[in-house]
Amino acid sequence: MKKQRPVNLQINTISFPPAAITSILHRITGVALFFALMFVIGAWAISVSSAEGFDYIKDQMAGPLGKFIAIGTISALTYHILGGLRHMMMDMGHWEELESGDLSAKAIIGLWIILTIVVGVVLW
């Protein structure tokens, strides 16, 4: 018996469906939130240590790097919540078909992009 399976080990040529992309992004944003939590806890610890520490963190968060970190953290949190809600809906038996699953995945990605732009405009 010949095993003639297609072998494709080039990741850049693999085409993922929208549902797979949303699932992978949900995991990535979960990891990003874990690392962002280190910045949040560190900034909080410095800001409550003294009045000078509070002023330092306030100045850092008003700068471009602080705004970039804040927008990135809020963006990751927004996507993780949207993706989590989508997964919860699927656990309840909705959006499990191929068409509705792809449509919900595209809607989540689109809504996430729009909300990230809105957050970026408001914070910048």
Rank of each mutant, 00 (worst) to 15 (best):
F16K: 15
K58N: 15
S104Y: 06
V118I: 14
L111V: 12
T116G: 03
F16Q: 14
I14D: 11
G42E: 11
I69G: 01
I21L: 11
A76L: 02
W124A: 05
A105F: 05
I57D: 05
H94P: 00
L65V: 05
M90R: 15
A20L: 10
S50Q: 09
I57A: 04
L9Y: 09
H26N: 12
G101A: 14
W112G: 11
L123N: 04
G72D: 08
G120S: 02
H26K: 06
T73N: 07
W124M: 10
S15Q: 12
G30V: 01
Q10V: 13
M89Q: 08
G84E: 08
S49A: 15
I11N: 02
A107Q: 07
T116M: 04
F39W: 14
E96V: 12
R5L: 15
L9K: 06
N8G: 11
V119D: 02
I113D: 00
Q60F: 15
K3S: 13
G83L: 04
L111E: 06
V7K: 15
A20T: 04
L98M: 07
S49H: 14
R86C: 04
N12A: 11
M89S: 13
G53A: 04
G101T: 11
K67S: 10
L115R: 03
S47V: 06
V48I: 14
F35W: 07
L111A: 14
S50F: 08
P18W: 10
I21N: 03
D55E: 15
F39M: 09
V40H: 01
Q60H: 11
A70W: 02
W124Y: 11
S47T: 09
E96P: 00
W112N: 09
L33Y: 01
L82I: 13
V48N: 02
A70E: 08
L115I: 10
G101P: 05
D102V: 12
G83T: 05
L85W: 08
V48D: 02
I109D: 00
I41E: 08
H87S: 08
T78Q: 00
I114R: 02
A105R: 07
L98Q: 11
P6E: 15
A20N: 08
P6V: 15
I117Q: 03
M38V: 14
K106T: 03
V119K: 00
V119L: 02
G93A: 08
T22A: 10
I21V: 15
F54P: 00
W95M: 14
H94K: 11
I74H: 01
I21Y: 06
I11Y: 06
I81T: 14
G63H: 05
S15Y: 01
L123Y: 11
K67F: 07
L65D: 06
M61L: 12
V40W: 05
D91L: 01
T13K: 14
L9P: 03
P64S: 13
G63Q: 07
R27P: 00
G63P: 05
K3F: 12
I41A: 09
A36T: 12
A19Q: 13
I28V: 09
A76Y: 01
V119Y: 03
L103C: 03
A45I: 09
M1E: 06
Y79C: 02
S15N: 11
I74L: 12
A20V: 12
A32T: 06
L33T: 02
N8L: 15
F68Q: 08
G53T: 03
A32N: 00
E52T: 14
V48M: 02
L77D: 05
S49P: 04
L103Q: 10
T73I: 05
H80F: 05
A20G: 00
I108T: 15
L103D: 08
